[in-house]
């Protein structure tokens, strides 16, 4: 069980962390932008928040990039851009999904929902949003849209979770402020708000 500092172990760690490539290429690779002089963008149509949107998309472009930088839906946040933090969580066919870790090209037949799509047409907050306000769930707020979407996904699948079930369902979303307790309070209140 002892951790051994071996070359193989280190290389595995460094590759996983992305540290080997200190800068050049990281942003570029993580956002799936095309290679210099490489593949071109293609116009596709995707269903976002109930609307069909036409957008030029590069082959390696992530859904998070498309939402934020092509469609202006900046409620979806990028915390790590590497599938660790959950700040970019959106719903794809009702399933909580890291938007930084799926390619937009794979979304052509999918139904995408972002935090901007939750309010009712008359401006009423979604019960999860309302509950998060009432419980003062957010602190800095940067992870909040992802937490909201993870909670919405949970409650669609299980409208009456226990706190323990909610804790597990939300565990793909990191909150560096440590507001987990307040988010769980919010989820349980959202259950009551229906």
């Amino acid at each position: 069980m002892n951790p051994k500092v071996t070359r193989r172990r280190f290389i595995k760690g460094v590759v996983a962390s992305g540290a080997a490539a200190t800068t050049t290429g990281m942003w570029y690779a993580a956002n799936g932008q095309d290679r210099p002089g490489g593949a071109v963008e293609r116009l596709i149509r995707i269903n976002v928040n109930g609307q069909m949107r036409s957008v030029d998309v590069a082959p390696q472009e992530t859904l998070a990039s498309t939402l934020r930088y092509k469609l202006g839906l900046t409620g979806t946040k990028l915390g790590c851009n590497r599938g660790e933090c959950g700040a970019c969580t959106v719903l794809v066919d009702d399933v909580a999904t890291y938007a930084c870790s799926v390619l937009t090209h794979s979304m052509k037949n999918a139904r995408i929902e972002t935090v901007e799509g939750l309010e009712s047409p008359n401006g009423d907050l979604h019960p999860v949003q309302q509950a998060f306000v009432e419980e003062l769930s957010p602190q800095c707020g940067y992870c909040t849209p992802g937490q909201v979407m993870a909670a919405v996904a949970l409650l669609r699948e299980n409208p009456n979770p226990t706190r323990e079930e909610a804790r597990h369902a939300m565990s793909g979303n990191i909150c560096r402020c440590g507001s987990y307790d307040s988010y769980l309070d919010g989820v349980m209140r959202a259950v009551q708000l229906g």
């Binding site: 992305g18 590497r82 660790e84 979303n173 990191i174 769980l184």
Partner: peptide
């Protein structure tokens, strides 16, 4: 080289590392 540049390697606590309440 730093190997804890991400959340996983530096091990920021998650929901499951903290009490239920």
């Amino acid at each position: 080289l730093p190997a804890s540049t991400g959340y996983w390697q530096s091990k920021v606590p998650t929901y499951l590392d903290t009490p239920v309440k």
